[in-house]
Each structure stands twice: as C-alpha cells, then as structure tokens.
Design a protein around this nucleic acid. Sequence first.
DNA 1: TAAATAAGACACCATTTAGTGTCATTATTA
DNA 2: TAATAATGACACTAAATGGTGTCTTATTTA
Lengths: 106, 106
Amino acid sequence: MNKELNRDVFVAIADPTRRKLIRILADERELPLYKLTPHFQMGRTAVSKHLTILKEADLVQERKAGRETRYRMNAEPLKEVKDWLSYYENFWNNNAARLKKLLGEE
Amino acid sequence: MNKELNRDVFVAIADPTRRKLIRILADERELPLYKLTPHFQMGRTAVSKHLTILKEADLVQERKAGRETRYRMNAEPLKEVKDWLSYYENFWNNNAARLKKLLGEE
DNA sequence: TAAATAAGACACCATTTAGTGTCATTATTA
DNA sequence: TAATAATGACACTAAATGGTGTCTTATTTA
C-alpha cells in the first residue's frame, strides 16, 4: 500500500524544529524520542510528528530497541538539495548573466 | 514598519512552483508577471502570491517598468542553504561517525 | 478619449500544518 | 506480578498555505 509517502525533502527541511532534529541526530548518532524531546519547547507528540515527516523524507531512520525507538539521521536525501543548489552556484562564483552573454545565449 | 517579513529561505524554496519560478528567472534574466503565469497551471493571482513569498525571502527582486512589474532572481540568499548543507557534506564524503570516533569525541 | 492590458488589493475557501491532550500497548524493573 | 516508562494512535484546534474570483488603478494604444 506504499505507506512511504516519499515526502519532499525540501518541505522536510523547511521547518526549523526539523533542521534542529537533523543536527542533533547528526551529532549524537542515535537517540530515542524521550531524549530528543527536552531539546525543544513543545511536547513529545509534536516532536514525534516532526520525526515522522523526516522519516517520510528518509532523512531519519528508526530502529526498535526494547520499548524505545531509536532515531538516527540519513544524510543521503540532502544530495537532492545539493544538486538543486549546484545550478545556482554560478551566480555566486562568476557573473552568470555575463557568462551566458559570452556563450552567445540570448 | 518593516514591511520586509524576512521570510525563511528554506520555506521559500520548499514549494515546487517557487523553485520553478526561480529557475525560470535565473534563465530569463527579467520577466513580468503575465509572461511568468503561462508557465504554470494556476492563475495569475496565485503566481503573484508565490512571487511575493520569494520577494520576502529576497530571492526575487522587482522593478517597475511602465504598467508592468519585472521580476528577476537574486541568488544570494541561497548561500544560507548552501552553508547549512555544508555541515552535512562530511556524511557523504567520508564516514562522519568514524571520523568523530577517530577524533576521540564520544 | 475610449478600450484594452498589467497588476495590485481583497475577500473567500479548502487543505495542511503544528501543536495540544488522552488513552492503549508494550517492555522493563522493583 | 504490579507499577512504571516509552511510545503509538487518535481526536481535536488554531493558524498558515495555496488556491480561487472580483474590483480598482494605472498605463498603453487604437
């Protein structure tokens, strides 16, 4: 039934809480929900929902360990963002408009 | 009164319509609303709202020319995304966890 | 000057988002 | 085994998002 909603990575990282989650998990390797929650001002349920969204974007993976579920980060989907960004890097390095003119486009 | 809402760049690029707008403006230099609209399936008002969001993130700038308003892209705010991403590039290049272990952290 | 065009400004609506609280389930541990 | 701890699963709510249509204003142009 494809429970994987395959959520947009761009949407997943648009929220500051989720970016903070990613950052914590990147540093801490693996953490259960009850250790993640106190980093935020919201309740456990809200943090859990953000984790679900990150899971749907495959930025976070989970592993059951006894009664707790441990979350860890997966950076791979961020490549999509990196690739998207790479198109615009010309705009910083050199003047893209001038470059295009030199190449005879337009 | 600070009409500049200074909207989050991450939120601005989370929407596919807005990413497409950015791309078009990156390629086309400068375009008025009525030339941008036919690229999409939505109406003029909706496209205009997306442009407003992009303006608030300073990803798009506008210039009045007669009765039309011409929009052009500004790539600068994307640097924030690039900088954010750079923290996670270790996770692709080398195994960051192993690196941290080597460095004696944790 | 009159008609047409471009866009701004609103009011409106459906859906999604981000949070809450509560109850049920499962695993630990005293 | 009984109490507790961690989480999942819901139901609910307020606010934001992403659209729509209509009306007005300003600028061309016939």
